[in-house]
């Protein structure tokens, strides 16, 4: 009886651990399936510039938001652009602090439709690192991206949204 009770007690302990294991599992699952709008990262040298699919045109729209607690204004300089799969493009986002103090933020991307996310790769992005702005500083931040040629031909429009979150304590 004592043995079976102890064995049974192992199940809740394992399941408590499993609850936490769901966190990395969730990330891995989203990474593999491209769900949840998580975009990929690619090295510039890995892109074959000759492989541009000029027969297709996809419209990419940009959204920029700041979350509560971050006194920044944040917007894309170009709201939308038409692109060919396989070609590298650059978009610029402008951020400006409305605070007189130094502030720290982190941009988090999200792509819609979700299934486009795994084909949306970036060689350079302001979201790769934290951004620190001095009081009232303004900054133009580049984003270099390429949409993979193997993207489903049902997708004609992609929306890329960035939200800046505050990393300042308090």
């Amino acid at each position: 009886m004592r043995v079976s009770a102890l064995k049974l007690a192992m199940i809740p302990v394992l399941m408590f651990g499993f609850g936490f294991a769901l966190v990395p599992l969730y990330d891995v699952f989203c990474d593999i399936t491209g769900l949840n709008g998580k975009t990929g990262r690619i090295e510039a040298s890995d892109i074959d510039a000759t492989q541009v699919d000029t027969s297709r045109t996809i419209e990419v729209r940009f959204l920029a938001n700041t979350n509560t607690g971050l006194p920044w204004s944040f917007e894309p300089l170009v709201k939308k652009m038409s692109i060919h799969p396989g070609e590298v493009y650059e978009a610029v986002f402008r951020v400006r602090s409305t605070s007189d103090k130094a502030t720290l933020g982190q941009a988090v991307p999200s792509v819609s439709p979700g299934l486009a996310a795994q084909h949306f790769n970036k060689t350079e992005c302001f979201c790769f690192t934290q951004q620190e702005l001095a009081g009232f500083e303004s900054r133009d931040m580049p984003l270099r991206f390429v949409v993979g040629r193997d993207i489903s031909d049902k997708i004609e429009q992609i929306t890329l949204s960035y939200t800046f979150f505050s990393l300042d304590q308090g």
């Binding site: 809740p12 302990v13 399941m15 408590f16 651990g17 499993f18 609850g19 936490f20």
Partner: peptide, 14 residues
């Protein structure tokens, strides 16, 4: 119960 209550405990711990 022993399978899922600990998952809830994990969620509130997070």
């Amino acid at each position: 119960l022993i399978a899922v209550m600990p998952v809830l405990a994990g969620a509130v711990t997070m």
